[in-house]
């Protein structure tokens, strides 16, 4: 599956991006809409008290797909980022591999308006971000307790700072963005990660949400920061290099600390 996604992205980028490297001034049209298709490298660090008292880390691939609508005064983004990782520890060995496989989905909707413009090249946008996070972890060494998940549906403030810079005779944009959820609906496994195999009507999904609660930052602290550099291509398309740091600490019966570093390259197709 991972190889297929990698090959697909390689073909896509090679065929499309190679035709884009023509000089064009940045458009002054007020409303721009983009499809975003990206591929990234995900580096995760995790400390999950539902699994063990040992730090796990690992790498994986992170495709992304999204929609962006931007104008002089507004910025709206809808982004889906799944990542697939295999985490291990420094204590892993052949007899005891200590592996955790993670499948993590983040679905973000961000709506920002321009709140400050120092000059044509430096602008501040602020608004809100709604985020759905679901991180499913599988630690087979724990047998019946092997499925551990983090779920959070959050809303909170977000902001980004855009700085227009000239590079390679083109007007590029360097962006620093930040979002912090304030209110979240979260869920983690029951005590001992139990899944009720003894019950003939074992309902994993139903149990997932029956064990949920609405919390603030004291139980779900999360911070997401984005650094990106957008380079204009032919026909208002763009290439975006990005680095995202996403950290959360979620506390229910026990606590999980998870951090993801995501280095990505995305193609923004104007439509």
């Amino acid at each position: 599956m991972k190889a297929f996604i990698l090959i697909l992205h390689a073909i896509f980028f090679t065929s499309i991006v190679s035709a884009q490297n023509l000089e064009l001034p940045r458009s002054k049209k007020t409303d721009n809409r983009y499809w975003l298709l990206g591929l990234g490298l995900s580096i995760q660090n995790m400390y999950d008290e539902g699994i063990s008292y040992v730090r796990y880390k690992g790498t994986g691939i992170a495709p992304s797909i999204g929609l962006i609508k931007s104008s002089e005064k507004k910025y709206c983004q809808f982004l889906l980022q799944p990542t697939f990782n295999k985490l291990t520890t420094e204590r892993s060995n052949e007899l005891r591999p200590m592996e955790v496989r993670t499948t993590r989905f983040v679905l973000d909707y961000q709506y920002l308006v321009r709140v400050k413009e120092w000059n044509e090249k430096l602008k501040l946008y602020a608004g809100g971000n709604a985020s759905l996070l679901f991180n499913l972890k599988r630690a087979e060494q724990l047998d019946n307790s092997q499925l551990v998940y983090d779920y959070a549906l959050s809303i909170g403030p977000a902001a980004k700072l855009d700085k227009t810079v000239k590079w390679n005779k083109r007007e590029c944009v360097a962006t620093f963005g930040l979002s912090i959820p304030l209110l979240s609906h979260i869920a983690r496994p029951y005590y001992l990660n139990r899944i009720e195999f003894i019950d003939p009507k074992n309902d994993f999904l139903g149990d997932l949400f029956s064990n949920s609660s609405v919390v603030t930052v004291n139980k779900n602290f999360r911070i997401t920061s984005d650094l990106s550099f957008t380079y204009p291509l032919f026909n208002k398309n763009e290439l975006k290099l990005g680095y995202t740091w996403d950290f959360y600490k979620m506390t229910t019966i026990n606590s999980v600390y998870a951090a993801e570093h995501l280095i990505s390259i995305s193609f923004l197709s104007n439509y």
């Binding site: 040992v54 724990l142 019946n144 307790s145 990660n193």
Partner: peptide, 10 residues
């Protein structure tokens, strides 16, 4: 019902 936990030494 059996349940499991990992120890610090693997």
């Amino acid at each position: 019902q059996p349940t499991g936990f990992e120890l610090p030494n693997s």
